[in-house]
Design a protein around this nucleic acid. Sequence first.
DNA 1: CGATTGACGTACG
DNA 2: TCGTACGCCAATC
Length: 113
Amino acid sequence: MKADKNDFFKDVYAVVRLVPHGRVTSYGAIARYLGTGRSSRMVGWAMNNSHGLEDSVPAHRVVNRLGMLTGKAHFGSDDAMQKLLEAEGIKVENDCVVYFERLFWDPARELGL
DNA sequence: CGATTGACGTACG
DNA sequence: TCGTACGCCAATC
């Protein structure tokens, strides 16, 4: 098993797919879980690459540390991301996830790092 | 090949 | 407490 940077992206997708239905996580949480820590930007880049992937990555479950739908503009429609979150029972208001801290899913914690 | 941007986060003033 | 600056790594211009 090689630990190429390519696996980093792959791991990001894997973690995002592991996010339970009706839950959300943050870029920093994933980055920290992967060990990149401060390279949270790369997580966002991975999401951007996820658009061309065969497997759909629930990027709508990934928001910034504030629970803000920062990537909503990349879903094609500004309402697409919010609509997807609401479809899972996540209440979104003013582009911000309501009870974000309650719905927050930390891989490093849930997966038992 | 060099400079800028980007779906973020933390540190400092 | 709020605002600004910097770091991170890769991709794009």
